[in-house]
Amino acid sequence: QTVHVKGVQYHFPNPEEAVKFALKVAKDLGGRVEFHGDEIHVE
Rank of each mutant, 00 (worst) to 15 (best):
Q1C: 13
Q1N: 14
Q1T: 15
T2H: 05
T2M: 07
T2L: 07
T2S: 08
T2V: 13
T2G: 03
V3Y: 00
V3R: 00
V3E: 00
V3H: 00
H4F: 15
H4A: 05
V5Y: 10
V5L: 09
V5R: 02
V5D: 02
K6F: 15
K6R: 12
K6E: 11
G7W: 04
G7P: 03
G7C: 04
G7A: 05
G7R: 04
V8K: 12
V8T: 09
V8F: 10
V8C: 09
V8M: 11
Q9T: 14
Q9E: 11
Y10C: 03
Y10E: 01
H11Q: 08
H11G: 04
H11P: 04
H11Y: 14
H11R: 09
H11I: 09
H11V: 10
H11D: 07
H11M: 08
H11N: 09
F12G: 00
F12I: 02
F12N: 00
F12C: 03
F12E: 00
P13S: 14
P13K: 13
P13V: 12
P13A: 14
N14K: 05
N14E: 06
N14R: 06
N14W: 05
P15E: 11
P15D: 07
P15I: 15
P15T: 14
P15Y: 15
E16P: 05
E16G: 08
E16A: 12
E16N: 08
E16C: 06
E16H: 10
E16I: 11
E17Q: 10
E17N: 06
E17R: 05
E17L: 11
E17T: 09
E17Y: 06
A18V: 00
A18H: 00
A18C: 03
A18P: 00
A18W: 02
A18N: 00
V19C: 08
V19E: 08
V19K: 10
V19S: 05
K20N: 09
K20R: 12
K20G: 06
K20Q: 12
K20T: 08
K20H: 08
K20F: 08
F21G: 02
F21S: 02
F21V: 02
F21K: 01
F21D: 02
F21H: 03
F21N: 02
F21I: 02
A22M: 02
A22Q: 00
A22E: 01
A22K: 00
A22T: 00
L23F: 14
L23Y: 14
L23H: 13
K24H: 09
K24R: 10
K24N: 10
K24Q: 14
K24W: 09
K24G: 10
V25S: 06
V25K: 07
V25L: 13
V25Q: 08
V25H: 05
A26Y: 03
A26K: 02
A26L: 04
A26R: 02
A26D: 01
K27M: 13
K27E: 12
K27S: 12
D28H: 11
D28L: 13
D28P: 03
D28W: 10
L29S: 10
L29I: 14
L29R: 05
L29M: 12
L29E: 06
L29F: 10
L29W: 10
G30H: 09
G30D: 08
G30N: 12
G30T: 04
G31F: 11
G31I: 04
G31A: 11
G31C: 06
G31K: 03
G31D: 03
G31H: 04
R32G: 04
R32K: 11
R32Q: 08
R32S: 09
V33H: 02
V33W: 04
V33T: 03
V33G: 01
E34F: 14
E34Y: 14
E34V: 15
F35Q: 05
F35D: 03
F35M: 09
F35C: 05
H36E: 06
H36K: 13
H36Y: 13
H36A: 08
H36I: 14
H36C: 07
H36N: 09
H36T: 07
G37H: 08
G37V: 05
G37N: 09
D38G: 13
D38L: 12
D38W: 09
D38Q: 12
E39V: 11
E39W: 08
E39T: 10
I40P: 02
H41A: 04
H41S: 06
H41M: 08
H41K: 07
H41V: 09
H41W: 14
V42T: 01
V42I: 11
V42G: 01
V42Q: 00
V42D: 01
E43R: 14
E43P: 04
E43M: 15
E43A: 13
E43S: 13
E43Q: 13
